[in-house]
Design a protein around this nucleic acid. Sequence first.
DNA 1: ATCCTCCCCTAC
DNA 2: TAAGGTAGGGGAGGAT
Length: 765
Amino acid sequence: MVSPRTPTSSNSSALFESDDTFLEALVGAVLPGDVIPQANNAEETVQNQPETLPSPNEASSSSLEPPPCAQPAWNAYSSIGRVDEQEAQSIDSSSKAQSQLLSKHSHLGQDYEPSLPELESPTPAQSRYKRAYSVSSDDEHPALAHSPVHAPDNRCTDSYLDPDTYGASRFGGFGEYMRRKRAKLQIQNAEMGGTTPTVVASTSKLFSGLSIYINGWTEPSVQELRKLIVDYGGVYHAYIDKKTLVCVMQFSPHAHFPGMITAYSTHIITCSLTPAKVREFKHMKVVRPEWLVQSVKAGFLLPWQDFIFVTGGRVESAQGRLAQISLKDFAASKQSTDIAQGVGLARQNPPCPDKIPSTPLPRLPSPQTPSPVLSPRVLPDPAWSAEHTSMAPGFIAGYYANSRLHHLSTWKAELRTLVTEAQERAERGDVHRVSESTAGKGESKQHDGAGLVSRPHLRGKPVVVCHSQHAQGGASSTSEIASASYEARGFGIKNGMSLQQARKLCPDIVMIPYEFDKYRELSLKFYTILMSCVDDLQAVSVDEALIDVTSTVAQSKVVPTGVDEENDCTSTDIAKELAEDMRTQIKAATGCEASIGIASNIMLARLATRRAKPAGSFHLRLAAFTDLLPSLDIQDLHGFGRAAREKACEKLGTSNLGELAGRSKAALCDALGNSMGETLYNAVRGVDERKLESDKPRKSVSCDINVRIGFPSHLDQRMLTHTQYGIRFENDDQVEAFIHQMSEEVARRLDSISVKGRSLLRSRS
DNA sequence: ATCCTCCCCTAC
DNA sequence: TAAGGTAGGGGAGGAT
Ligand SMILES: [Mg+2]
């Protein structure tokens, strides 16, 4: 909550506190039911936060105190097994030894977590939480600017006699089935209204003539709303058919014809719409439940226009956001688990002017002027060791500061942003781009060795990058090796190994520390060079990118033969020349070697990169690829990993691409799923139609940290001697404090990209 | 058939 | 003293 507010969102100062509280409240409330996933409209809550949301402390204190018996609900999908499965996969594909160890442990105690029924009644925390959602706000609805605004007079409205805005004016027939269903429902409604007359005559017709459908999760609940509608003379529809909706008929609610069955849905009530529903209901009158509630309270029907349901992203400054939160179950099982919080992004923000580097065309900002979008995180004083617990303030920042994986993710997000911005600038300028042709794709990858640039004396020696600072000594370090030089690999050292193991293989191993800032600087130089050479670029990671050099190659192709065509075997390979030129530039600018794979599509280019390593370039043509097939495994393809390989072996009897090339598409789809199957079917034929994705907006922001909850059992103790992984919690307070920090972290990140959350989703694990 | 939700998988 | 973070594709299976 310390970060400066971004000028783009008008209510930003309230925003992040709210989100934060919101998230935290959710964490506590999420357990029993299924209400959370659709909860959204965070904006409303946000804007009303001061008076309606519980204070952070209040939320915190109760959010994690459901009675112990409630916790098993979280375990309905206890992820213990799954977590360890993930562990077994390991982050770096090479940390096998440790992973397998974990995998075994995972079967010790927790194989079958009984799936317990979810609780029905909301906990107090949940109630309060839901209340927070139901707050209606007076925020102007920008979307209404162009629609008729009705004076809040008491007429129950002729207000929707203007079909132009929301009502469709086309007609269509009803299906008999749905019509009968609706009629039946109305009878039920009538009966219900008769048996439980909550209201007196004068107001009882408040909703007469209204025919209302309720979609999705709402607050108040569907049941409550239905009662409200029926009690006040409206008609509730539990079902909807599209024809009816598209042909919404509008009529005065005053016109109440006792004998007539109201067969038209006039309004849709919702708190949350999925994108598909938004599309579907585009021309409908979609209203928030407050319309009903407030109308009853007021004693007359308020204009529905004042309660139009607005999805997060409207044309103006309102940026739709989808918030997601997730936490690995840290319930009674006391096992390794992940805690995660996040928001999904419904749409991208308009670029914030002060964030656009003023650099000219398709160039990245120079490394000397790092983008303010993501400035390096400040490291806390290492002297925190006194209070070194997972719930100490600043723990997460410190954790991240040392996490290579976090840096990888952060860098990637930043690079994608920079690339997108640079391209927007390029397109806004007069840069003319020829029509898309997928003639030349390349994959460029920085060779590792960044740590050696400033340590030339270590070149040629077995070097590993890892955390341990102690030169030798501590033979028991479990610090993971992030990267090993080729010389070190010669000793059998692999990325992902523990330092301890590596020392066994090579006692004289040289260790160098992470230098995250340096990597980032080098990366920006690397990308800057690429950007200047290519038509299009997709950031893959801090040291890897996909580039499209079609026009460059095609332009220079004064020479007859096509460089990207398979029949080209001439000595002049313009693409390769370009690649070598880029390699030279990269080497000059960064001191690092780069490898470049060239091919006619992404899949082949990625394979080519493997052949280009180390420190070279390689143009892979279709014929060569076909020859190569029998030597390739399905795992060698991007997107196909361990699980795909196992499925292939199990269901197809082989994971060899040469053999799989002979299988039918149906067989592959059957084994791997339709999408993966088809991808593979095409891949073995050298076909890959994907285009570079350089401008896809980010869809979510999340925070995810692997922790371990509870006192270790005997079994766990043994595990822990083998793996030090896992931040450990001993009680709910610690968990709570930790989750609070994670909430803050997500809020901070949203803030940093001028984005606002729209709804929260649950995820567990 | 198409959606939504809850995951699993993959990559760096 | 070690830091297994995260975004996004996609499948399974249920609801509509
Ligand atoms: Mg692979």
